[in-house]
Design a protein around this nucleic acid. Structure first.
Lengths: 88, 88
DNA sequence: AATACAACGGCTTATGAGTCACATAGAAGT
DNA sequence: ACTTCTATGTGACTCATAAGCCGTTGTATT
């Protein structure tokens, strides 16, 4: 059952869209070496809300996602330019 | 004041994100030569809801946007691969 | 053990999702 | 010219859920 968990976390092909988005945010945030709280402050969302987004528990609206994407200093094109989001 | 309207509709740089998304959906739908109603049916949303999305009046969640994007037979990467969504 | 970071559960309120009746406009047919 | 059909848009409404915010807990790190 640790194997199942492993698959869920790495094989993004079968991941929920909200999980994919959360993982993408986390990736980009770690690249910038900032904490959830720091990112949350820039995006003007609550720290615990950001946790929910990164863990795929929140189904964000486009407007909130825009704030987060901008807080990551990128745009939607770059944010979604990732294998996770392509059916290929 | 017709001039203002003209700018709002064409100069996407200053458009609301929901307007941009609506315009992008409309573009892609017209390319496929299908009606709002046909697209709405595939995406399993109401026809009038689709109108609201295309006219930028709805702030959609990621899950609903996913249904629409898939109904257009593309993925998120392609959907957001457009000048409208890049800060350049 | 103190500090920083991340996650969870639960709660309120603001708004998205979904649906309706009705309106408008343009084509197509008669 | 006047219906009829097709496509789209609007306002208003209900119900579901996203947004936002607590307090608390867990877990490394120093």
């Amino acid at each position: 059952m640790t194997i199942d968990l492993f698959l869920v976390e790495t094989n993004f092909k079968y991941m929920d869209i909200n999980q994919k988005i959360g993982e993408r945010i986390r990736e980009l945030r770690k690249e910038k070496n900032i904490s959830q709280e720091a990112l949350a402050n820039i995006a003007e969302v609550d720290r615990t809300y950001m946790t929910g987004v990164e863990t795929g528990k929140r189904n964000v609206t486009v407007k909130v996602l825009e704030r987060i994407v901008y807080a990551l200093d990128i745009d939607f094109t770059i944010f979604f330019d990732d294998n996770k989001f392509s059916r290929k």
